[in-house]
Amino acid sequence: MNNNILLYIGRFIILVFVQVFILNHVNFLGYLNPYIYIIFILLAPITIHKSLFLFLSFVLGLTIDIFGDSGGIHAAACLVIAYLRPIVLRSVFGLSYEFQTMKLNNARFGERLAYVILLVFTHHIVLFSLEIFNLSHILLIGKKTLFTSLFSIVVVMLILVLFRRKDS
C-alpha cells in the first residue's frame, strides 16, 4: 500500500514536469500541445476515496495552471473529468466495474480506448471553452478541441502501452 502511494506521488510529479517542460512546448502544426498529465486521473485506483480524488485532481490542474499562467482552466477541466470518471467507468466497463474487479491494464483494448477517448475529449472541451471564453469563437474552440484531443489520445495511448505494468 505504501509503495502504491509513493508510486502515485512520483507519477504526479513526473507527469507535471513532463507536461510543463516538454509537452507545453511541442506546438505541433503551430498550436497543438498534447495534454498527457491527465493520465494521473485516468490511472487512479478505482477504489480511491472520492473526495480525496476530487481534491487531488483539482490540485493537479492548479499546478499546471500555475506553471502556465492560465488562471484556473486546467483545474476546472480536471475536476470535471474526475467527477465524471465513475460514470464513464460504469458505462464503458459495465459489470466488472460494479464489482470492482477490473484493472485498466487487463481491460480489452477497445474498452480502454473508449475510456481514454471519453475522458480526454471531455477534458479538452472544458479546457478550451474556458481558455478562449468567448462564444463567438465557438468554431475555434471546436477546432482546437478536436485536433488537440486526437493528438492527446494518441500520445496517452502510446504512454499507456509503453509503461504498462507487467506484474498484474
Binding site: 476530487l54 490542474g61 492548479l62 495552471d65 488562471g71 482552466i73 483545474a75 476546472a76 475536476l79 474556458l130
Partner: peptide
C-alpha cells in the same frame, strides 16, 4: 465538486 469548480472558474474569470 461544486465548490472547487467555482473556485477554478473564479481563477479563470480573473485571468
Amino acid at each position: 465538486f461544486l465548490f472547487l469548480l467555482l473556485l477554478s472558474l473564479l481563477f479563470t474569470i480573473q485571468s
